[in-house]
């Protein structure tokens, strides 16, 4: 025991300490400014509803800025508001489920609300629903009961999916049907349509060839090249998706800035 080397504490890092102090100071100044601003806006509001609105805007702004603080670095303020968000969202949706789903769709029908006759047979549905939780039992003797609601869902889902899938793929405008496009000069409507259709069909075939595994890609030169082209074409598609993702994330930030600048701070623009 005596030979064990005790980890030595880091030597005091003066620069880190200075940064920490500066961070605390900036946070304190910002917090003071925001608090004073919210209080002033509330005090200057005309009536109670306006005051409540100003309070609401103030809280929303504080939440927004606290979440944005993560961009600087992970910090306790961010953590706190993250947990607030998760907790509120969970509580809110539990409330919504009870008020909008369970009470009107099940409870009211079972007990006969608004003068309707009671349908006590509806008691069976939560019992079937609760059988899902038998998944938690490891013993097959009890676990088996969870299969009862599963087979209801499987049967219901499969029957609906069959028709829906047929509409989607093989209906009049289905995806598979739409892939059969005119590529011969005398069938296409015009030159541009012909070029478009040729590109469309060529891309479809090249991408499909990438997923064609009946022959070895390495030993078949045609398949190797077409699969490589298919991969590049898919990468272009993924690039497009990534581009729109960036645009979407920017939009979220723009929306928050719109709120902070115009709604909360009331700046013209």
């Amino acid at each position: 025991m005596a030979d064990q080397v005790q980890p030595t504490a880091d030597p005091p890092d003066a620069r880190r300490a200075r940064v920490r102090t500066a961070e605390l100071a900036v946070t304190g100044v910002l917090a003071a400014f925001i608090t004073i601003y919210i209080v002033v806006r509330i005090a200057r509001a005309d009536d109670t509803s306006q005051r409540m609105l100003m309070l609401q805007y103030g809280l929303a702004a504080v939440c927004t800025l606290a979440i944005f603080s993560f961009l600087y670095r992970e910090n306790p303020i961010y953590r706190f508001f993250e947990h607030v968000l998760v907790g509120l969202a969970t509580g809110y949706f539990v409330g919504i489920e009870v008020v909008n789903v369970i009470i009107p769709n099940w409870w009211n029908k079972m007990v006969g609300a608004k003068g309707a006759p009671a349908e006590w047979s509806w008691i069976i549905f939560p019992i079937i629903g609760l059988l899902w939780y038998f998944q938690l039992f490891r013993n097959p003797r009890w676990n088996w009961y969870s299969r009862i609601p599963i087979f209801f869902f499987m049967g219901y889902g499969a029957s609906l999916a069959y028709k829906g899938f047929f509409n989607l793929m093989f209906g009049e405008k289905g995806q598979v049907m739409d892939t059969f496009r005119a590529v011969l000069p005398f069938t296409a409507v015009g030159a541009w349509d012909l070029i478009n259709n040729l590109i469309y069909v060529a891309i479809a075939l090249l991408v499909l060839s990438y997923f064609f595994f009946s022959f070895k890609h390495e030993t078949n030169p045609l398949l190797r090249r077409s699969a490589a082209s298919g991969r590049y074409l898919m990468m272009i598609a993924f690039g497009s998706i990534f581009g729109t993702t960036v645009m979407g994330r920017m939009s979220l930030l723009i929306d928050r800035l719109y709120f902070l600048y115009h709604t909360w701070l009331g700046l013209p623009g």
């Binding site: 209906g171 405008k173 289905g174 995806q175 049907m177 739409d178 998706i241 729109t244």
Partner: peptide
């Protein structure tokens, strides 16, 4: 991007 095929097929 995932919705464009449905626009092209006029769904």
């Amino acid at each position: 991007p995932e919705a464009y095929p449905y626009f092209k097929s006029k769904q």
